[in-house]
């Protein structure tokens, strides 16, 4: 009777210790040390991710920043006219020019 009581007490204590023990144990990879200060927490979890985001977005936007705006059909064309292989002085050449004076043929198209 006495041994049975002793066995059950030992068993109860052992169970308690075995189940409660892991709660006090270190997590795997956990190293006890000084906690991070508020400043470092902000640096590690806010500034560095935001910085990485900004760097990546900068590099992804870089090609379109370097190129001229690409022509997109349907968008208004707000650039000054360009005349390749035109007259030396376009304004004075156009002043005396009237439509149909020299044209004989050609083609029209739309897109």
């Amino acid at each position: 009777m006495k041994t049975r009581l002793l066995a059950s007490v030992i068993g109860a204590v052992a169970t308690l210790l075995l189940t409660a023990g892991p709660a006090f144990a270190l997590e795997s990879g956990e190293v006890r040390g000084k906690p991070l200060g508020a400043g470092l927490v902000i640096v590690y979890y806010v500034l560095i991710p935001v910085g990485a985001f900004l760097v990546i977005s900068f590099f992804s936007a870089l090609p379109s920043m370097l190129n001229r705006p690409r022509y997109r059909p349907g968008r208004p064309w707000k650039h000054d006219p360009l005349w390749f292989n035109g007259p030396d002085d376009p304004d004075s050449a156009l002043a005396g020019a009237r439509p149909g004076a020299t044209a004989r043929g050609g083609a029209s198209a739309e897109w």
């Binding site: 035109g86 050449a93 156009l94 439509p99 004076a101 020299t102 044209a103 029209s108």
Partner: peptide, 14 residues
């Protein structure tokens, strides 16, 4: 009219 404008430019080629 684009045709008129184009013909005017063509005439401006002198």
């Amino acid at each position: 009219d684009i045709r008129d404008h184009a013909e005017r430019l063509h005439a401006a080629l002198g």
